[in-house]
Design a protein around this nucleic acid. Sequence first.
DNA 1: GGGCTTAGTTGGGGCGTTAAACTAAGTCCG
DNA 2: CGGACTTAGTTTAACGCCCCAACTAAGCCC
Lengths: 412, 412
Amino acid sequence: MTAPPVSDQLGLRRANLALLLGTLRAHGPHSRAGLARRTGLTKATASSLVAELTGRGLVRLGEVAPGHGRPAQLVELRPGAVCGIGLEANVDYAALAVLDVAGGTIAQRRVAVDLAGAGYDRAVDLLAALAKEGLAATDGWVAGITVAVPGLVDVDHGVVRLAPNLGWREARLAEDLAGRLAGRPVLVDNDANLSALAEHAAGVAAGTPDLLYLTGEVGVGGGVIAGGALLRGATGFTGEVGHLPLDPVGLPCGCGRRGCWETQVGLAALLREVAPPGDPVADPATDLETRLLLVRDRAAAGDARTLAALDRIGTDLGVGASILVNVLNPAAVVLGGYFALLGEWLAPPARAELAARVLAPDCGGCRLLLSDLGFTAAVLGGAHAALDRVFADPTLAPTDDSDPDPDPRSPQ
Amino acid sequence: MTAPPVSDQLGLRRANLALLLGTLRAHGPHSRAGLARRTGLTKATASSLVAELTGRGLVRLGEVAPGHGRPAQLVELRPGAVCGIGLEANVDYAALAVLDVAGGTIAQRRVAVDLAGAGYDRAVDLLAALAKEGLAATDGWVAGITVAVPGLVDVDHGVVRLAPNLGWREARLAEDLAGRLAGRPVLVDNDANLSALAEHAAGVAAGTPDLLYLTGEVGVGGGVIAGGALLRGATGFTGEVGHLPLDPVGLPCGCGRRGCWETQVGLAALLREVAPPGDPVADPATDLETRLLLVRDRAAAGDARTLAALDRIGTDLGVGASILVNVLNPAAVVLGGYFALLGEWLAPPARAELAARVLAPDCGGCRLLLSDLGFTAAVLGGAHAALDRVFADPTLAPTDDSDPDPDPRSPQ
DNA sequence: GGGCTTAGTTGGGGCGTTAAACTAAGTCCG
DNA sequence: CGGACTTAGTTTAACGCCCCAACTAAGCCC
C-alpha cells in the first residue's frame, strides 16, 4: 500500500492523481476548482487530472452544486467500475467481499466449510472459486485480490509462514492462488491486520490515522494502524497481544505460561465463566454464534451470573488494552469479534480501567469503540487493501480507450 | 521530518535531491554514474542534482576511484558545512551537540546545572546560551535546533505539556527559544524519542527501520522507530512503558499501583537490590554515575550480591521487553541509560527471557543490543532530527551564490 | 598505441505544471 | 429585467525538469 517512488514526470503525474483520488476519498465530492484549492494545484491541472481519472473509470461527474458564481460540477468516486476483492480463509468458513472505490459493496458472501480439514490444495481451490464468483459479480476492473489468513504471514512474498488453526505452514498462497486466477495480483495478510485496515477505511473509526483493533476469538488478535498505515514490524509479526502476561498465578495457557491475556478474555474464558457445567452455552456441538447470541440475550435479561462474568472480562480487557494504549497512544481502540457482540457490557468496565491506567492526560485522547463490521471485518479489509493499490497508483487502472496501459512496474 | 508533498516540478526536484542525499547517507560515497544506477535516474539528471547539492554545501567531490573505464569521482556528504544542533534539558544537566550532514561531531558539551531548580525562564536562557555556543562552533549553515525534554511533548506546537522532573507544564519552549535565537527553527521532542532516533541514525542499530529503544533512568523510557520513522501516536504520547503491570503483588509505584516495570528495573530497584543498607552505592549524596561505575566494578569483580541483583533485573527487563517485542516486532531492542552501562550482565538473562517469551519464530528476528551512545543519545538524536529536515528537503540549505533562497514554505 | 570500457557532459525533445486570459453560467440587486 | 458580479472551468503559451542519445573524457588491457 506504500506509494511508489516519485522520480520522473510520470511519477509526478501518478502522485497528483493519487492526491486527488485520496482527497475525494477523505473529504467527499469536490468541484474541480475545489480540488485545486484544497490540493494547491492549479485549476488547469486539476481539470486535466480529473479527466484522466474519469478515463480510468475512477471518478465521474455528479450533481451540480449552486453557489455564488457559476455552479460547480461535483467530481465523485465512481461506484461499480473499479473493484477490490477480499477473501478470508478461516477454520470453519471462507468469505468473499467485493468493494468498489466509492466504498460500495458489490458482493459479499460467507460459506461454511471446514477449511482446516480440507487440506491446503482443496482450500486454495475453494478460495479460487470464491474469487471467480467475485470476478463474475462485477463488469468493472479488479484492482487486486487480498486473502485474510489467521496466522503469521510474510506479506512481501505472499507466504503463510504458519497458520496453526488451518494447519498451514510455509504455504505460498499468493503464488498458488494467482496461478488459478490468470496471474491477477494476489496479496496475503493477517486477518487482524486487515480488520484494522477495514476499521480505518470504513468502520466506526474511519479515517483515524492511529488506531488499535482488538478482536475476541479463540485467542485475542491485534492490528495496529499508526500514522495512517499498518504497523508491520521488522518481519510482519506485530500485534501478538494474546499472551500479555497479566496474572502470574492465573490459568495455564497453550503457550506454556500462566495468566496470559487470552486465558482471561478469550472465548474459552467467556464460555467458562458465563455458563455453569451442562449449560447449552458451553456445548461445543452448538454453533458458536448461536451460543454467543444466547449469552447476549441473558445479559440483556439481566442474568446475574452472565453480567458478573462480562464485567470481570471487560475489566481484564481494559487492563490489557491500557498496556497497549500506553505504548501505542492510538486515538481509538476498536473492539471486534465477540468483544463487539457483547460490547454493551464489556465496554463500560474496560473504559474504566483504561481511564485509570493510561498515563497520558485524558487517556491520551483514546476512545474505546465497538466495531460494527462484525465478523466481516477481515474480508472487508482485504478488499480495501486491494483497492489501496489503486489509491496509491491510479495509473494501474486501465483507460477506457481500450489502451492496455503498458505499466512499467510489474504486478505483485 | 516527514517529506513535503510532491506536486509540482519543484517538488519533484526536491524529492530527487532528497533521494540522492539519502542514498549517500545510507550507502556511502558514490560516483555520479553510480548514483544514477542505484536511483534509476539518468546520468544527466544525477549530474545536475549533484551540482545543485554541491552548490548548497551538502556534498562535495571526493577521491577518485579507478575502475575498468574512466575513473569515477566519488560524491560524498560534505563535512562541516551544514549542521544540526541538539540540546537537552534534564534535571541536573543540560547538553549540546552539533553534528554535520556527514555525521561528524562539530561540538559536544554537557553542563551540570540544576535546571529543575532554576525555573523555566532561566532554563530557557541557559539553553539559548548553549545553542549560541553551538552556533558559534560552526561557520556552516544550521538546519535547525532540537531540544530533548524528559516529559510529554506536543511536537507539532513545540510545547512541553508536562515535564514533572523539571517542573514544567504547558511550556511554549519552541517559541520561547526561537525568540532568543533570531527565530531559527526550533523543534521540541521527548528525550526517549530522540534517543531512539539517534540509535536509528548512528548507533549500534544504525539504519534499522524498526527498533525499540529502552532507557534505564529513574523510570524506564521507551522510544519506537517503526518503518523508519518515529512512532508518535495520536497525541504524541507513545512509549509510556514504565508502568507495564508485571507483578500484582509487587512493590508500590509512584503511579499508585503495584509492581510496575519500573519498580522492578528502574534505578531505584537497582540501587536497592545491589547495595546493603549503608553502602556508598545507595548514598544519594554521591554522584550517580560514580555509583553506577562502582556497581560495574563490583560486577566485574564477581561480587555475588551484585551479580544476583543484576541477573534478577536483567530477567525482569527481558520479561517487559518481550511484551513490547510481541506487540511491535522490532528488528532490534537497544538498551540505553544505565541498562547499557551494566548491559554486560543485564543482557544475557534478558535475552533468555526474550527468546522464551516472544512468540514469533526466532524471536521475530529481534536482537538485543547495548547502546554505545551513553547518556548523549538524546542530544545526538536532537541534532539528527534537525538534520533530517535537510535530508527531507535539501532545498532548505542556501545556495552558495549568495542566493537567499526564498523558500515558499515557512520554517517551523 | 589502438581498442575497450566506463564516467560524465551536452543538446534536443517530451511531458506536466503554471500563469494568465478567456469563456461559461449562474446569483445579486437596482 | 438586465447589467454587474462571482465563481467554474478551459485554453494557450511558457517554463522547468527529466529523458534520450550522441559525444567527449580518461583510464585499463593487450
